[in-house]
């Protein structure tokens, strides 16, 4: 029986994440929503969600004394970052006039722009990038198992992760530009969209995570 910890650092509502995980996790697994460093450190799998502004997120992570805890578990066991929980893994964000992030991966988080345009059609794009967009799987990964390439997931964000190392990009989406919609490195997988709100494709990704051993290769 495994314990799956959803880290609660006060940034937004976690019920949807828990609802979706409860639906797909193996019977007998326990899902705990916690801000306790001890509970996070003792869990088998970690989900690191997040929404809202980068500054508030970083502030709350620190206020809950979770900065080092997150860095520790992210180096050890199956770890899933969702939305802002993906962005804060990078070094720096343009949001809120410039914010230092956790710095697990080199790279920055950038703004889509005030009124970006589609590079092909010239159509003006709305910000936030909100709705169902296709995710192109950049490479095979256990968390993509059973999810057709170019499946649509639900996004809502105005900033996107731009990791310095293209080797960690696990999926891309297109919104004016091609951006990193998912990244993967060792036991870490992080995704910009909301799998908990992405119907079958999202539930499948969470199903895969709840069974992932943390190995980056499909066996």
């Amino acid at each position: 029986m495994a314990v799956l910890a959803v880290i609660d650092y006060g940034m937004g509502n976690l019920r949807s994440v828990v609802n979706a995980l409860s639906r797909v996790a193996p019977a007998g697994d326990r899902i705990v929503v916690t801000s306790s460093p001890q509970a996070v450190l003792s869990a088998d799998r970690i989900v690191f969600p997040g929404q809202g502004a980068a500054r508030d997120c970083m502030h709350e992570i620190a206020a809950h004394e979770l900065t080092e805890v997150v860095k520790t578990v992210a180096g050890q066991r199956p770890f899933l970052g969702i939305c802002m929980g993906m962005q804060v893994l990078l070094e720096h964000s343009e949001e809120n006039g410039g914010i230092q992030l956790l710095g697990l991966f080199p790279g920055t988080v950038r703004y889509f722009g005030v009124s970006p345009r589609d590079s092909r059609t010239g159509e003006r794009l709305k910000i936030p990038h909100m709705g169902w967009n296709q995710v192109r799987q950049a490479r095979a990964h256990p968390l993509w198992s059973g999810i057709p390439d170019l499946s649509r997931f639900y996004f809502v964000h105005s900033y996107y992760a731009a990791p310095a190392d293209p080797g960690i990009v696990a999926g891309t989406a297109e919104y004016g530009i091609d951006f990193c919609a998912a990244l993967a490195c060792d036991n870490i997988f992080a995704i910009q969209c909301h799998p908990e709100k992405s119907a079958e494709a999202g539930l499948r990704l969470l199903h895969n995570f709840a069974r992932w051993n943390g190995e980056p290769q499909t066996t």
């Binding site: 589609d118 059609t121 794009l125 990038h129 709705g131 169902w132 967009n133 296709q134 649509r152 297109e174």
Partner: peptide, 8 residues
């Protein structure tokens, strides 16, 4: 492959 228009 642009963003889908939504039906609500």
């Amino acid at each position: 492959m642009p963003l889908a228009k939504r039906i609500i």
